[in-house]
Amino acid sequence: MDHTQTAEPTRRDFLFIATAAAGAVGAAAAFIPIIDQMNPSADVLALASIEIDLAPIQQGQAVTFTWRSHPLFVRRRTPEEISAARDVKFDDLLDPLARNANLPDNAPATDENRLNRSGTGAKPEWLVLVGVCTHLGCTPEASTATSRQGDYGGWLCHCHGSQYDTAGRVRVGPAPRNLDVPVYTFLSDTRIRVG
């Protein structure tokens, strides 16, 4: 077919390139809402933060809440459980990192670092963990006064046998990491906000 060649091919090419570029930008911008609509909607994000009243929880008792579609373990530890966690030799731990969202990523997994010392001072009896096994996502079962789950007084995951201690740290695999400690803060002695 006859394409009339103009005397300035560069000017014509620039026009076509500019138009194509503008079109590509427009098409990409038009695609953003299509992709972004799959991100969590505003009502889902609103439930990303919950407040929990700690007063009804007795010493030695653990309660499971729902937070961001997952179980949230809140445990009020007995002094024996606290000292059991503190007596563990650091080198015996499978995962040396604290996995505490309130602390820097490289904080070591000491028992103190598994707590949140914000708000009203150190509260070693309160343990708040995301109840999702770090292996493949099952919900581990907690030891109680009458039923011991695993050999470390903490949690046992029945799916593949991972065991956690009284600070929620993994002691027997196949789970690779300690149970996560979420972002939370003490609003008062008896109230925390998670997330």
Binding site: I32, P33, I34, D36, Q37, N39, S41, A42, D43, V44
Partner: peptide
């Protein structure tokens, strides 16, 4: 209404 108010760009879609 959830689409119009809560879903990201839902009103636009």
């Amino acid at each position: 209404e959830h689409i119009m108010r809560d879903v990201n760009s839902g009103w636009l879609l």
